[in-house]
Amino acid sequence: HLHLPHLQHLIQAGEALTLTEPLREFFLHHPTAQLHNNYGPTETHVATAHTLPTPHTWHEPTAPIGHPIHTTSAYVLDTGLQPVPVGVPGELYLAGAGVARGYLGRPGLTASRFIANPYTQDGTGARMYRTG
């Protein structure tokens, strides 16, 4: 077993965090360490953050993505860009300061994935990213 007695925080970002048995075992042997899941596709950098509780409470194989970080908004919308109720499937859209301007040299793809944000009323032309 890897033993890191001074480890306080382990931060994961990028792909979806899978809560595997080896990861659970690691945190059972490092009970004071915290696991942080930072979600965000490349097009938005890090968009959400979630600190997981103890491994004893990990019941699902995939960690929650958490709540939007400062200057970021997350929306789960239907095909008409209307919010869906909790528990109803929809598509995740991300908006805010970390959203890219688009894909270099790919105007068609940019137009399909980066759309005007109908929930911003500040006149800045803010866009949101359709995660798919």
Rank of each mutant, 00 (worst) to 15 (best):
residue 3 H to K: 14
residue 5 P to F: 01
residue 7 L to S: 09
residue 8 Q to I: 07
residue 9 H to T: 10
residue 12 Q to F: 10
residue 13 A to G: 14
residue 14 G to K: 10
residue 20 T to M: 05
residue 22 P to V: 11
residue 25 E to Q: 14
residue 25 E to P: 00
residue 25 E to T: 14
residue 27 F to H: 06
residue 27 F to A: 02
residue 28 L to S: 07
residue 30 H to C: 09
residue 31 P to E: 03
residue 31 P to R: 04
residue 32 T to K: 07
residue 33 A to T: 07
residue 37 N to I: 03
residue 39 Y to M: 05
residue 40 G to W: 05
residue 40 G to T: 09
residue 41 P to G: 14
residue 46 V to H: 03
residue 48 T to N: 04
residue 49 A to I: 06
residue 53 P to C: 00
residue 58 W to N: 02
residue 59 H to N: 15
residue 59 H to Y: 01
residue 60 E to S: 15
residue 61 P to E: 08
residue 61 P to K: 12
residue 63 A to Q: 03
residue 64 P to L: 01
residue 65 I to A: 00
residue 66 G to H: 04
residue 67 H to V: 15
residue 71 T to I: 02
residue 72 T to S: 04
residue 76 V to G: 04
residue 77 L to F: 05
residue 79 T to F: 04
residue 82 Q to F: 07
residue 87 G to E: 02
residue 89 P to D: 08
residue 89 P to T: 13
residue 93 Y to K: 08
residue 94 L to C: 03
residue 95 A to Q: 04
residue 95 A to F: 03
residue 96 G to E: 02
residue 98 G to V: 06
residue 105 G to M: 12
residue 105 G to C: 10
residue 107 P to A: 10
residue 107 P to F: 02
residue 109 L to S: 11
residue 112 S to L: 06
residue 112 S to F: 00
residue 113 R to I: 08
residue 113 R to W: 04
residue 114 F to Y: 15
residue 116 A to P: 10
residue 119 Y to G: 09
residue 120 T to L: 10
residue 125 G to V: 11
residue 125 G to Q: 09
residue 125 G to M: 11
residue 128 M to C: 09
residue 130 R to D: 04
